[in-house]
């Protein structure tokens, strides 16, 4: 099996990694770069715990090969807060009590950030639709949906 040298940017930092063909982006992040905030919940694109932002779009990192990420700009949960300042989605999910066991939280926050990037003022339905690929077994989603709404408000206020 061949190895591939790839260059990409992760959370603003340039990285060079040698990966095997069958290494998924998720495996590279967790096993090679020790970026373990991104979680493995099913390895089948169903649970969303491994969601990262690839060139601005959320994606299941278990569903893409590392070698396909040559030249990519990647944001993981570790890169969501900037200079010690929480992203509004992080602050809002704390405020609303949308964190319990915390295992789905990284993926949910990436999905939420991506939603607010493309739609700064989502409706309740649009929030649910955007999070349907992020399974959570603890919270019942209600506080998470409320958190995305709060984050949209915070983002709007900060922009004013």
């Amino acid at each position: 099996m061949s190895l591939h040298r790839i260059n990409l940017k992760i959370n603003g930092v340039a990285e060079q990694v040698d990966v095997a063909s069958n290494t998924t982006l998720l495996q590279m992040l967790r096993d090679r770069l020790a970026l373990t905030g991104t979680k493995n919940g099913c390895a089948a694109g169903e649970c969303g715990a491994c969601t990262v932002m690839l060139n601005g779009e959320p994606i299941n990192s278990c569903m893409i090969l590392a070698v396909e990420c040559e030249g990519a700009d990647l944001v993981t949960i570790e890169g969501l807060a900037k200079d010690g300042q929480l992203d509004v989605v992080q602050q809002a999910i704390i405020d609303q009590g949308g964190v319990q066991c915390g295992f789905c939280t990284p993926g949910i926050l990436i999905s939420a950030r991506a939603l607010l990037n493309r739609n700064p003022d989502p409706t309740d339905y649009e929030i649910r639709d955007a999070l349907v690929g992020n399974l959570c077994r603890c919270t019942g989603y209600v506080p998470i949906i409320a958190a995305v709404k709060q984050a949209a408000q915070m983002q709007k206020q900060a922009a004013q």
Partner: peptide, 9 residues
């Protein structure tokens, strides 16, 4: 189809 993040692929 499926979810937003899966539709990215």
């Amino acid at each position: 189809v499926a979810s937003y993040q899966l539709r990215t692929r």
